[in-house]
């Protein structure tokens, strides 16, 4: 078989180009720290990595959402906890003022105390968190409860709505971050007001009724508190779960696209040797000719 000089040269060049290309590929891998920098270098792995990265970024949002959700839930819980204390205070007041030993002056003194409690409950009902009223449903801009002076004392108007403030903390998974303001504060406000009015009126009979009303109100508030407790616990569990998932996805993603440095460095060495070999072979192959041996 004839071997033309051009064939030899072409083959030698091809060998050199190929080794250089492979060297370049490892260099890019080492510089970027990734097995592939473009989808076409490993389409199936790139597709998996894409899905994983998407999951990971989505999870990140859900984690952040569940943290802000937990913050808000804590604010609501704290408010309701204070409400519980206030209703308990009112109840104690009611029980204490039911004593027959008290004079009218004592009662009017206690009425002032009841008024304080009533004011505190109202403030609580209108409390806001990050500039938004917590208990007005979707109508968060204005205070949800207003006290109006009527014939037999104060009445309370609820200006909020029944809207639920929700937050998505997982795919299709939402938590409700508020409680209906009228359901939580309606009966406490009313009961405390009745207590105040009864004390002002110095009316022992209605004081006894007030006590049972306050009991009912306390029960309701405690129920709400229990609901909040369960919700917070669930949310915390969920946030933990999200954290675990995050780790798992990150690990998977790393497996798909991160470079095995040991392997890459050893590849680099092998390919360096291959490159030098191709150069040496080309030099040995191309240099001599018959002319070197003819005189």
């Amino acid at each position: 078989m004839r071997v033309a000089d051009s064939s030899l040269a072409r083959q030698a060049l091809r060998g050199i180009h190929e080794s250089r290309r492979q060297l370049g590929a490892v260099q890019v891998q080492l510089a970027s720290g990734r097995r592939f920098t473009r989808a076409s270098q490993a389409p199936p792995a790139a597709a998996r990595a894409d899905t994983l990265r998407n999951q990971l970024e989505t999870l990140g949002r859900y984690q952040a959402s569940s943290h802000t959700a937990a913050d808000r839930l804590r604010a609501v819980t704290a408010t309701v906890a204070v409400l519980t204390e206030l209703v308990q205070d009112a109840l104690q007041l009611a029980v204490a003022s039911g004593s027959g030993a008290l004079t009218a002056a004592d009662r009017s003194c206690l009425a002032l105390e009841a008024e304080e409690i009533a004011g505190a409950v109202l403030d609580l009902a209108n409390s806001s968190w990050m500039g938004r009223h917590l208990f007005g449903g979707h109508l968060t801009a204005d205070p949800p409860f207003a006290r109006e002076t009527g014939a037999g004392g104060y009445t309370f108007a609820y200006r909020g709505d029944g809207g639920e403030v929700i937050r998505e903390v997982g795919p299709g998974c939402t938590v409700t971050l508020n409680l209906p303001g009228d359901a939580v504060f309606g009966s406490p406000l009313e009961a405390v007001e009745r207590l105040r009015q009864a004390l002002v009126d110095n009316d022992p009979a209605s004081l006894a009724e007030t006590t049972s009303a306050l009991h009912q109100a306390l029960d309701q508030v405690l129920q709400h508190q229990a609901v909040l407790g369960v919700r917070t616990a669930h949310l915390e569990l969920w946030a933990d779960h999200l954290g675990t998932m995050n780790c798992a996805y990150a690990e998977n993603l790393s497996r798909e696209e991160d470079l095995d440095f040991t392997k890459a460095v050893s590849d680099l060495h092998t390919r360096e040797i291959a490159y030098q070999a191709s150069l040496a072979v080309a030099a040995r192959l191309l240099q001599p000719s018959l002319l070197d041996y003819l005189r």
Partner: peptide
Amino acid sequence: AQIMGVSL
């Protein structure tokens, strides 16, 4: 090139 190439 086997046919047409020049071999020095």
